[in-house]
Design a protein around this nucleic acid. Structure first.
Lengths: 292, 292
DNA sequence: TGCCATGTGGAAAGTTTTTTTCAGAACAGG
DNA sequence: CCTGTTCTGAAAAAAACTTTCCACATGGCA
């Protein structure tokens, strides 16, 4: 191998752009299950990945190995080094970085948040909220705060693909009265409110509630005052060692809700997705999709 | 292998008395340098130990293996098991819901994505990118695609709080040439490109690159073509059992980058945060912060 | 000393793995 | 819609590996 110090992982990263579609398929399989996915014979490895042996052979040469056996040996050496190394703690995420590196500290905190968040989701409320989000007989309004308007935007983009009648309340609260005008009994308002809670949002929620709108709230562990009004509210753990809050768990819960809403009404959703795809094709905005 | 639970080490000890002189020579060599001395091909292993290949072959059969390949596999498995450690798989996330509930399936997939993503972040590139994001001498441009513009928006909101001279390229690509006009050598362009990759973004990256702008790319495991141009590119695993891709790992990486950039220039950032807070107070947009 | 049992490795035979070749398929660009 | 390029995997060829066979060496024993 040309770079004696580089790990196979690094070599893949370095050469990734040179790799073809099938080669990447194997590269990804290996990175996802490292290094186990590369330890068998080339024949077996190829079969497991779903590509041909020549593809693997070509790829390891691109990585700088003379042939598959050399590649195989390199993986083995890494594995050994890992075992014999100084009491390898698997707590490290960014495998090469020290435990104290921000990447690892950050990963630890966020993982903890996700864990706590998901452990505390009441599944009936979740299912009920998903049903509300999927209910196409009524309109769905989405709104977020200063920071969370990006999440609201994300929710809007996806839910719009899932169902019709989705409306995103722009962040300028001056225009909210216009939207309130159109809210009707049975509609749903999906609201994000993470500290510092905005009084605007509370007022909006109150007015919506008065009109018989179901409020679904996604908030943080200190709970926005909107929670008292909401039909369903979900608590996300957001604290990280930083001046601001992490929204990873928030996004994760949101995505879960979208996935659930999508499953709720799959036949219609599927047709809708296909129409959307067709429209994109026509506007030629996009290249052909990536592999897989 | 006949005794599925026994390690090769134990097998050798158990059968040691049955072994002949040359066989013991190999057994000792293996025990002294375990398991490295047994990981190569039978030919090499034999040569290194100073015995013949038939000797090795006979011995592994005495140990209960069908042949050398089986023996080899057994060693490999032990090594892997050692690395992956006590596989602490979290069974259920949403504690009260059944494993098959969408919440749990979803959590499992996303956790896997996060784990893989963070394992594959090259820490030098991460540090370098953070430095670019924190460099206030130059302008920072941020742009995203159809789905990822929400992430770009999120990045913009936070980075704007961290430093001056941050510009968010609105999603309408018609206006991009205006921004290009102002890009100068040494500026940074933070770009999100998740499949399906948009040709607009590639062209933008190319033009920016020509002007001497450093492109920091956040993409998915199939790698946007922009990766070939980018100064630093980061791969996020985004696949979930769904028609669309999850951006949890993407957001997590983004937040880590923001946190790193913030740490990079904390004194200025801190003062800036305080000024921002003061401004919010004055505009009375917000209630008093939540507890803690 | 001669005979036999046992251990050992060279080399052939057999098997598997790896590499190479090549033709068709997919794709980008004109 | 065509054209040249790149990519891919089936299959053949080459290489490597593993096993088997067998002759030879060694050492115990009558």
């Amino acid at each position: 191998m040309s770079q004696p110090t580089a790990t196979v992982r690094e070599l893949i990263r370095e050469h990734y752009t040179d790799l073809t579609q099938s080669e990447r398929k194997f590269a990804n399989a290996l990175l996802e299950n490292y290094p186990a996915a590369g330890l068998a014979s080339i024949t077996i490895v190829a079969a497991q990945t779903g590509v041909s042996t020549p593809t693997i052979a070509r790829m390891v040469q691109k990585l700088g190995f003379k042939g598959f056996p050399q590649f195989h040996q390199a993986l083995l050496k890494e594995l050994q080094a890992k075992v014999s190394g100084p009491t390898e703690r698997r707590a490290n995420w960014a495998t090469e970085a020290p435990e104290s590196h921000l990447l690892n500290r950050f990963a630890k905190a966020v993982t903890q948040n996700i864990q706590t968040t998901f452990s505390n989701v009441p599944s009936e409320a979740f299912d009920a909220a998903a049903q509300l989000l999927a209910n196409t007989d009524q309109t769905l309004f989405i709104v977020g705060g200063r920071i969370t308007h990006a999440l609201a935007d994300y929710a809007f983009t996806h839910l719009q693909a899932v169902r019709p009648r989705v409306i995103h309340l722009t962040s300028s609260s001056a225009t909210w009265p216009h939207y309130l005008l159109d809210m009707a009994r049975g509609d749903t308002l999906l609201m994000f409110d993470i500290r510092r809670y905005e009084s605007n949002l509370l007022r909006l929620a109150e007015l919506a509630r008065e009109r018989g709108v179901d409020v679904v709230l996604i908030t943080d562990q200190w709970a926005s005052p909107v929670a008292e009004i909401a039909s369903h509210s979900f608590t996300c753990w957001v604290e990280i060692p930083s001046a601001w809050d992490s929204n990873v768990s928030t996004l994760m819960l949101l995505e879960a809700l979208i996935a659930a809403a999508q499953e709720e009404a799959w036949p219609q959703t599927k047709a809708r997705y296909e129409r959307l795809d067709g429209l994109f094709e026509q506007t030629r905005l996009f290249r052909k999709p990536g592999s897989q």
